[in-house]
Nucleic acid binder design. Sequence first.
DNA 1: TCCGCCATGTAAGTTGTTACATGATTAG
DNA 2: CTAATCATGTAACAACTTACATGGCGGA
Lengths: 188, 188
Amino acid sequence: MSLEYILLGLLREAASGYDLKKIFDTQVGHFWAAELSQIYPTLKRLEKQHWLRSHHAAAKRGPRRIVYETTAAGNRALRAWLESGPEVSDERQVFVAKLYLLPALDDLGVTLSLLTGLRQRFATRLDGLRSLEKMWAESDPRYPADLPTVEFHKLLALRKGLFSLQAHIEWADESIRAVHKRMKSEQA
Amino acid sequence: MSLEYILLGLLREAASGYDLKKIFDTQVGHFWAAELSQIYPTLKRLEKQHWLRSHHAAAKRGPRRIVYETTAAGNRALRAWLESGPEVSDERQVFVAKLYLLPALDDLGVTLSLLTGLRQRFATRLDGLRSLEKMWAESDPRYPADLPTVEFHKLLALRKGLFSLQAHIEWADESIRAVHKRMKSEQA
DNA sequence: TCCGCCATGTAAGTTGTTACATGATTAG
DNA sequence: CTAATCATGTAACAACTTACATGGCGGA
């Protein structure tokens, strides 16, 4: 499963399950999400497999933490996965399915409100990514041409999100125009 | 679950599980996939729920077929779902995760080959959608401005795929250029 | 003292995949 | 006759979600 390798990869620096969850929520959420209830058992499994090891961190403040780090075997596994070529899974997109089936209602108004609702959601997400990019650009003088390798790859991933969301918005706009046009000619 | 409603929606015309599978593979595969092993039990569940009813079709040629059609209750359920507003699930994209974690290899060559491999896959899919669109445009004189409602919505869904794939390709091209640039400056 | 955040976990259920089983009919 | 396609299904597994349980610690 991909999550195993993603955890392995994020553990470039030692971290607890809770820390990793925060990374998902703040850094990589635009291409992968994970719940704590999935993270904790997966970390345990990886440790049993000797791809990770853990130690209980002395709790200065707050409750006990279990901090994981990768082993040599874990790194080998990660590298093998990274070298194993592109995997493009086919996406299931509920909103496209809804649109496709909307003729059952025979009401272009619903089609229009679905599209405008979608446009809004895409725009909100795009704003999120853009402000991430902006904060980064302003705080790191090396941005974007002189970034170190890790940040360079982060940037590629971020721009994937930007491109996708822009395309979604352009598609929604084109579709909204098409629906308007259709509604006018229906009246006539 | 969405598949239930999608089956319900596709059953605008009566069909067997096998027929529906073919629709997934040829018509809606670019936004939803389903296996027979999931379709058959789901149809049975929908029938038990009285959203569908079935009859055994007389087998003129070929083995027995079980043909399903929607009930009034099924149509009500479908309509409620269609009216329930946009659902945008967050997508998990393995290839973006790989890219993000590739610094672990410290080898831009692998990044480059991942990106070119992706570009190729996206291009192949785009070709598939474009030829679908082309066949359609050539066989239906009403295309694209005077399509009936059902086909109009199909077109919206198809164009969603085209926009997305085009954006993916543009992103891959930009990324490939960035990697090349970086490889040159590394040599120096 | 109570609330919110830190931190780890389990249980049950949903959704989807892969592999297997079975048999009818048709085209070469 | 044999392979491909039509047609329906079950079993086991994998990935992920939602809800629940437990407790420590810090600040208002």
